[in-house]
């Protein structure tokens, strides 16, 4: 086991994929000489050359669309979009094209494309660089949506994502890049279809993903100090959702709090809550609770941004409220 950062783990995953298969290439803004705006691809240009680590014009639609075209031809492109906000410039390519071409071609073509992007707030990057729009993408049939929250998932999700014959979107929360964790040299490939119990518990299930996993784990620590045993579930795959694992946990704890950095209305947290209601209603001892981002554009000022985001304290309070 070695200690590594989320960033290094993701870079190692990229390196591994580029070594394993010549059809894999990485393209996006600043991924080459600059090493990526979050330094994920640092050093890869030197190792793999400009034909496989490709700096692009500032044209999100073009490089996502080109990724689709290359994938149609049997390549295995990895497209990096700097932030989820910028992915909106490629929304037509992602939603109207990548997600539909298998369907629209009667199964003649599929799109084995991986799109990575940074998501989330907490770095004072203001409203146009900080949003969490994973829930939007998780709404769309034809896409697989992943949210690696740990070093192990950062290392282990990319290869199976590349092996998926359909498009996969990988959301990397910006606050996680410096997070450290233990990684085995022969870390196993991650199963992309299942949620993971990150902390077992008996009294309440905290459901989180990506950046909010840390929030939920911190809240679970605080709750443990009060004698409340919280189970923390990492959704990991936002589409498809692992409903079975979610329901099994809630049947066991009888309470659920969904922690989501997305906005509350029409959100992924609403979907998770609805599934619990549909499938475990009679196991619940209290209504499902949600802790989400405030429904405002993510503010720039640090104290305002902190106030807008889900905090461990808010999760603890939600648990108190449902026990009352």
């Amino acid at each position: 086991m070695t200690t590594t950062t989320y960033r290094q783990a993701m870079r190692e995953a990229l390196r591994d994929a580029l070594r394993r298969d010549e059809r894999v290439f990485l393209m996006g803004e600043d991924v080459g000489r600059y090493g990526g705006c979050y330094a994920v691809s640092l050093g890869l240009l030197e190792e793999f050359g400009p034909q496989r680590i490709i700096d692009t014009p500032l044209s999100e639609s073009a490089f996502v669309g080109a990724g689709i075209g290359a994938a149609l031809g049997g390549m295995r492109p990895i497209v990096e979009i700097m932030t989820v906000n910028f992915s909106l410039l490629a929304l037509d390519q992602i939603v109207n094209n990548a997600a539909t071409l298998r369907h629209m071609s009667g199964g003649q073509f599929n799109v084995p494309l991986v799109i990575r992007m940074t998501t989330g707030a907490g770095r004072q990057l203001a409203a146009q660089h900080s949003h969490s729009l994973e829930g939007w993408y998780a709404h769309v049939p034809g896409l697989r949506i992943l949210a690696p929250a740990t070093v192990q998932d950062a290392r282990g999700m990319l290869w199976p994502a590349l092996c998926d014959p359909d498009p996969v979107l990988v959301f990397e929360h910006g606050l996680l890049y410096n997070a450290e964790g233990e990684l085995a040299a022969d870390a196993p490939v991650v199963d992309l279809t299942t949620a993971a119990v990150r902390r077992p518990g008996t009294d309440v299930t905290l459901l989180a993903y990506g950046g909010t996993l840390r929030t939920a784990l911190a809240a679970a620590d605080d709750l443990a100090g009060e004698g409340t045993s919280a189970e923390v579930l990492d959704l990991r795959s936002l589409r498809p959702l692992d409903t079975a694992t979610i329901v099994a946990s809630v049947q066991h704890t009888h309470r659920a709090v969904v922690v989501d950095e997305g906005w509350r209305s029409g959100s992924l947290s609403a979907e998770v809550s609805a599934r619990i209601t549909e499938e475990a209603f009679y196991d619940l001892d209290a209504p499902v609770a949600r802790v989400c981002a405030a429904e405002v554009p993510v503010p720039y000022a640090k104290h305002l941004e902190e106030a807008a985001l889900p905090s461990p304290g808010a999760v603890v309070e939600a648990v108190h409220h449902m026990a009352a």
Binding site: R23, F25, Q51, R52, S61, A62, V64, G65, A66, G67, I68, G69, A70, A71, L72, G73, G74, M75, P77, D92, Q93, N96, N97, L101, M104, S105, G106, Q108, F109
Partner: peptide, 28 residues
């Protein structure tokens, strides 16, 4: 497919992007 022809594109102009990307793969 047998005639090296992509699916008929309905989204106006999207095939230009896909063709460019396909051509990038051809060059690679």
């Amino acid at each position: 497919l047998e005639r090296h022809t992509s699916p008929i594109c309905i989204v106006v102009g999207a095939n230009a992007l896909h063709a460019a990307g396909f051509a990038l793969g051809v060059r690679l």
